[in-house]
Amino acid sequence: MTRKINADGLAHIKRWEGLRLSAYQDIAGVLTIGYGHTSAAGAPQVKAGMKITEAEAERILQSDLAKFEQRVERLVKVPLSDSQFAALVSFDYNTGALHKSTLLKKLNAGDYAAVPGELAKWVNAGGKRVQGLVNRRASEAGLWAKGEFVSSADVPAKPAAPPVLTKETVSWGAGIAATVGSTISGSGPVQWALAVIMILAFAAGAYFFLRDRLRPA
């Protein structure tokens, strides 16, 4: 079964393509409709004056994306996270050039780190640099960066950073310490008994509290 882009990737493509229910000419002068659909992607053929519904635009997008999902899955020979896969589908959907790109060659050689820089090269249309494409490539690089870094040609994969305490955790611990301190300040047997109970309760609940509040730096 062909791999599908995740919801984040689909939302990314919709956001950058935009939805147009009437045929228009894109920045390269190509008739386009829906979420960036052109005749080059297959049926339906886009004609001047053509109109579609939002439901039709969604169906066309899903049909178009299936072709590019298949292309990315076939062309890329190294493992990809969901976000990395989605970034390449977006790039190929927009350019149709993954198969002939240096990006693909470097990626298949294991150079994951080269991808953002290669994406940044695809920013021209009609022989001119287009700011919209600059922005889109940057967004695709951001989507790519959400994926887990595997390795590059000269940089080994790094283990995840150890978890660190959040400010909330530190404040909570300080509050517990202050409460215990004030309880035993009277030095009476009752105060000491209460302090022992509080310390035991703290020890019992600390694991669950910290487990939910420890996160990577």
Rank of each mutant, 00 (worst) to 15 (best):
P189C: 05
F68A: 00
W122D: 00
V190R: 12
L31F: 02
N6T: 05
R71P: 00
V89M: 09
L194I: 13
S101M: 08
F91H: 05
L61V: 09
D26G: 01
Q191F: 07
A161N: 11
F208Q: 10
S182T: 09
K4G: 00
E56V: 01
P163F: 12
S171K: 14
K105M: 09
S63W: 06
K128D: 01
G181L: 13
L88S: 04
R71C: 00
A66Q: 14
V164W: 06
A41V: 02
D8M: 03
A41E: 04
W172F: 15
I52D: 04
N94T: 06
D82I: 02
L133V: 05
G142V: 01
K100I: 11
F208W: 09
T179M: 11
A43F: 07
Q84F: 11
D64A: 06
D92H: 10
T32V: 08
S187T: 14
Y24F: 12
Q191W: 05
D82P: 07
G9A: 02
G142Y: 01
E140D: 06
F85A: 00
S187W: 08
S182H: 09
A97G: 08
T102R: 14
A141T: 01
D111Q: 13
E140S: 00
K105D: 05
V123Q: 06
D212S: 13
G173P: 00
L165K: 12
L80C: 03
K121I: 03
F91L: 03
A153H: 06
V155C: 02
A11H: 03
S171D: 15
D26K: 02
N135L: 12
G188N: 15
E73N: 01
A204L: 11
A113Q: 14
R215F: 04
E69P: 00
G110H: 10
L200S: 08
W172P: 02
A7L: 06
S81L: 05
G42K: 09
A97K: 14
A204C: 02
W16L: 04
A7E: 12
F202T: 15
K167F: 03
E148P: 02
Q62W: 05
V115A: 01
L75Q: 13
I184Q: 12
E69C: 01
A138T: 11
P163V: 14
K14R: 15
F209G: 01
R213G: 04
G132N: 07
T169Q: 10
P216N: 11
R20T: 09
A141I: 03
L133W: 07
A7Y: 00
I197M: 12
A206T: 08
A7D: 11
G117W: 03
L21D: 03
E140N: 00
W16Q: 03
K121S: 03
L80K: 01
A7S: 11
R59N: 10
I176F: 15
G126M: 10
Y24T: 05
Q70F: 08
V180Q: 12
G188H: 10
R136H: 12
T53E: 08
T53K: 05
L103D: 06
V76Q: 06
E56Q: 15
R20A: 13
S187N: 11
